[in-house]
Design a protein around this nucleic acid. Sequence first.
DNA 1: CTCCAGGTTCCGG
DNA 2: CCGGAACATGGA
Length: 292
Amino acid sequence: MKHCKPEAPPTDLVRIAAPDFDLLRTLDSGQVFHWHPHGAGWVGTIGDQPVFVEQRGKSLWISRGTEDVVRHYFALDHALKEIYATFPADPAMNGALDYCKGITIMQQPAWECVATFITSSLKQVAHIRQMSLAIRKAFGEPVCFSGLELFTYPPPERLALASEKQLRDCKLGFRAKNLLGAARKIADGEIDLQRIGTMDDPEALAELCKLPGVGEKVANCVLLFAYGRLRAFPIDVWIERVLREIYFRGKRSVTASRLKRFSREYFGPYGGYAQQYLFHHARKTYRTPPGS
DNA sequence: CTCCAGGTTCCGG
DNA sequence: CCGGAACATGGA
C-alpha cells in the first residue's frame, strides 16, 4: 500500500452502536479479503467508498458519513442472540459458538463476492487475499484515503476487457479463465446479479451456477455472504471434515448428498451462521493428531 | 521435497 | 448418482 499523502488515522469519526458485534473476528473469518490494519482500527473499501472502522468496546468508531453503509455491510442489525438460540445445542456447536461469538454474516456487494470466491477454489485464505489485492491494484480505481492508497474492486465491465494473461499475472492460475468468463457473462447481461436477489434460494443457486467456476459451494457462499440467505450452507473441505469427524463419526460411505441433507435439516433456519462458526473454529484450531 | 488449500468440471462405472 | 483426475500456485 502506497502513501499518497502523510496523514495519521482519520480524526473525523462518529460512533455507532455495535453491542454484540466483534469486528476483528468478523474480518478474520474468511468472508472478505481486503481489509488492512490501520492505527487502532482497519481501512478498506465498501463498494467504492473508503472506510475506517475501529471497535472500542460495544461501539464502532467510523468515518463520518459512512454510518448506513457500515451498518449494512457488517449486518449490525442481525439479532445475534436470537440466532444463537436456534443453534443445535451439541458440544461441537457450543464450542464453535464460544470461539466465534460476535461474528456476523456480512452483506457484501454481489459481484465482489462472486469474483473473490471464484478465485478461492483450492486456495488458502492468505492466497485469496493476495489475488484479491493484485486484482484491485491492476484493474481497480485508486482511492486516496487517510494517507493510504486503496483500490476499489473492478466491476465486471472492467474485468471483461482484461486478457486471461493479465489475470494470470495476478496469480490466478486456472481460475483466470473462470473469472474472465464470469465477468463477461455479467457484463453482457446474460446473468443479472440484481435479478438473482429477487429469486428464491434454489432458483438463485441454479442461476449463480451458470457462471464458470461457480459450483454449489461457491454459489452458497455468495447466497450467504452477499444475498443475506442465512440458511445457505457452503460445504468446503473444513466443514466436510467437521461433519464427517463429529456428526458422522465412525460411519462409512457417507455420501456428499447425505451431508447436504443433514446440514440442511440439522442446523436450522440460520444454518449459514452455524456453518460459518463451525468453519472458523475448525480452521483456527484444527491440528492433525500426532501419528495419523 | 511433499502435502494441501473456503472447488469445479469432465469422464467412466 | 458416485468416485477419480486434472487443473496452478505458494505456504507450511
